[in-house]
């Protein structure tokens, strides 16, 4: 195995474990993590079996990646991952808020009704 292969497989495996851990802690919601699980699995496969990647690269006519491209890619990866976490948190608070509004609206209706009948 070439160094870069070990690196890629290692990184994807590491990200996979992190993703599962974050779902477990409910920092990341499943609906935003399915795509990450798939991406990490594909990345791992490409890392472990580079022939598949060579084939795919040939298909698209890409033969090498520059270092700057990899760095930019990793940077975007971190940002996107971070956004997934923020989205998870937002949708969680949003859900609680929406439920609370529904329950409060009902209470308002009820008290309005009882005021009417009370008079």
């Amino acid at each position: 195995m070439v160094k870069i292969q070990i690196f890629i497989s290692g990184v994807s495996l590491f990200l996979f474990v992190i993703t599962i851990g974050l779902i477990k802690k409910r920092v990341l919601k499943e609906e935003y993590s399915v795509i990450w699980i798939i991406a990490e699995t594909v990345l791992f496969i490409f890392g472990a079996f580079p022939r598949i990647l060579t084939f795919v690269a040939g298909l698209f006519g890409i033969y090498y990646l520059t270092a700057i491209f990899i760095i930019a890619f990793l940077f975007l990866l971190v940002i996107a991952f971070y956004y997934s976490i923020i989205l998870s948190r937002l949708s969680e608070t949003n859900r609680a808020l929406v439920q609370e509004i529904g329950l409060l609206k009902l209470q308002c209706e009820k008290s309005a009704k009882s005021e009417k009948t009370g008079e």
């Binding site: 859900r95 929406v98 439920q99 529904g102 329950l103 609206k105 009902l106």
Partner: peptide, 22 residues
């Protein structure tokens, strides 16, 4: 019969949880 109107679509899980809270 009581009706709760949720302002945004939460899906079955969110709707049921509203029911559990009630």
């Amino acid at each position: 019969i009581t009706v709760i109107d949720i302002p945004f679509n939460l899906g079955i899980g969110g709707a049921m949880q509203t029911g559990f809270k009630y």
